[in-house]
Computed example of a mutant assay.
Amino acid sequence: MSFQKLDPNALDAILDKTMESINTSKSKLFEIGEHSHEEYQELNEQLLLLKEELNTVQKLRETRLHEDRIARAELVKISKNFHNYGEPVIRRAYEQASEAQIKLSISLEKETRLKDHIASIENRISSVRKTSDKAESFMSQISTVLSFLGGELRQYGEAIEDAKRKQEYGLRIIEAQEEERKRLSREIHDGPAQVLANVLLRSQLIERIYEKKGKDEAFKEIKDMRSLIEDALSEVRRLIYDLRPMALDDLGLIPTLLKYLNRVDERSNASITFEYYEGIQRMHVRLEAAIFRLVQEAVQNAIKHAEASKIHVDLNLDGDKIVVTIQDNGIGFDVNVRKDQSFGLLGMKERVGLLNGTIKVDSTPKKGTYILIRIPIHEQEGV
């Protein structure tokens, strides 16, 4: 069947039914994930309390062991000089030894039960975590399918003539978006969310610590919690900067690029240099954001894919155009051969095209890559 003979209404009906079924599955997966998360929190709280109890029991066991040793020593002493002691003393020694042994056995048994219980809960926590991770992974895959069915396939179906390329390009965009969302979700879950969960659990124990160990230990716990909260706040600020550097709105393109490139230079093995024309003024926010993302994409490609050790970025003016060049000494590639890595460049070309600009890419295997971008400034002011 050709694409020209497809009935759009029939396709929409099929998509609607498919999406309804997938959404039902997604809701069930969400419920499983939420239930697993709640169970995970409850199990962690139980584990914390059990470990405290185990610590108390282990200290008591040491006391019982010491008492048992003393009672046994006294019994040995009396046995060696049996005729020197009266019946009451001998009976009391045997009773004390028996009582000490019973108390020690009870402590050891309780310690064993607690250790078994802790191991059981730790195994359960591991199982619940795996279930939660699987549910999250499946939901991410379902989101990718739903985004494609309800977005690109429905919206751009008639606009792109090459169906195979349309599908590949649309899916890659969605996958990139979903991967970014998944990365942010994982960072928030493993960073601020875990810290806040830990703060919540520890806050519930402060009253218990105050009652058992006094106010000094309770205040120490509060100080530790404050440090955790500060770490979480720092992590949240970093995530916000990754989403959109606030300096871009406040200070403009040049200072934001300086800050970004310095940070990349410090955290990577590549040496980055940045030159710019000091006469560049503030531009439309859309243009500044686009140039920042273009430089960001080119620099990341040079580091991750080209394995470059040197990267040079230059911003200049040519009449009414902003000119951006990014050059690296990486492994390069054949511009005539389409590869998976070229998806980043394809996205850059799309972005430049939306701004009525031009982009030129020169690259040779083992000789590095040179990117030249020219974008008209004044055409963006009315946008």
Rank of each mutant, 00 (worst) to 15 (best):
K5T: 14
K5A: 13
A10H: 03
L11G: 03
D12F: 08
I14F: 10
I14M: 13
K17F: 02
T18M: 13
M19H: 04
S21T: 02
S21Y: 12
N23T: 10
N23C: 12
S25F: 01
K26M: 06
K26R: 12
S27C: 09
L29C: 08
I32R: 14
H35W: 02
H37W: 13
Y40I: 06
N44P: 07
L47G: 10
L49D: 02
L49S: 15
E52K: 13
V57W: 10
R61W: 04
T63D: 09
A71P: 01
R72C: 00
A73H: 11
A73K: 12
N81G: 13
N81V: 09
Y85D: 05
E87R: 10
I90W: 06
R92P: 01
Y94G: 00
A97G: 03
S98N: 11
S98A: 14
E99Y: 01
S105M: 05
K110Y: 14
K110P: 01
R113V: 07
K115L: 07
H117F: 06
I118P: 00
S120T: 11
S127Q: 09
S127E: 14
D133H: 10
K134G: 00
S137T: 12
M139S: 11
V145S: 09
L146G: 07
S147G: 14
E152M: 11
E152K: 11
L153E: 05
Y156K: 05
A159H: 10
I160H: 08
D162T: 04
R165W: 10
E168P: 01
E178V: 07
R183F: 08
R183D: 07
L184Y: 01
Q194T: 07
R202C: 01
Q204D: 10
L205M: 11
I206K: 03
I206F: 08
G214R: 07
K215I: 13
A218I: 00
K220V: 01
K223L: 03
R226Q: 14
S227D: 13
L228H: 03
D231A: 02
E235Q: 15
D242N: 11
L243V: 05
L243S: 04
L243H: 08
R244F: 13
A247K: 15
D249G: 04
D250W: 11
D250I: 13
T256K: 07
L257I: 04
N262Q: 12
R263I: 05
D265P: 00
E266M: 11
S268V: 02
A270K: 02
I272D: 01
T273L: 08
E278W: 00
R286W: 07
R286D: 10
A290F: 00
A290I: 00
E297T: 12
E297F: 09
E297S: 14
Q300I: 09
N301P: 05
K304M: 15
H312G: 03
V313Q: 11
L315Y: 01
D320V: 02
V323H: 02
N329R: 00
G332W: 04
G332C: 08
G332V: 02
D334A: 14
N336K: 13
K339F: 04
F343Y: 12
M348F: 06
E350S: 11
V352W: 10
G353W: 14
L354S: 08
L355M: 14
N356D: 10
K360R: 12
K360P: 00
V361N: 13
D362M: 12
G368T: 00
I373V: 15
R374K: 15
R374E: 12
I375C: 02
I375F: 05
I377V: 08
I377P: 03
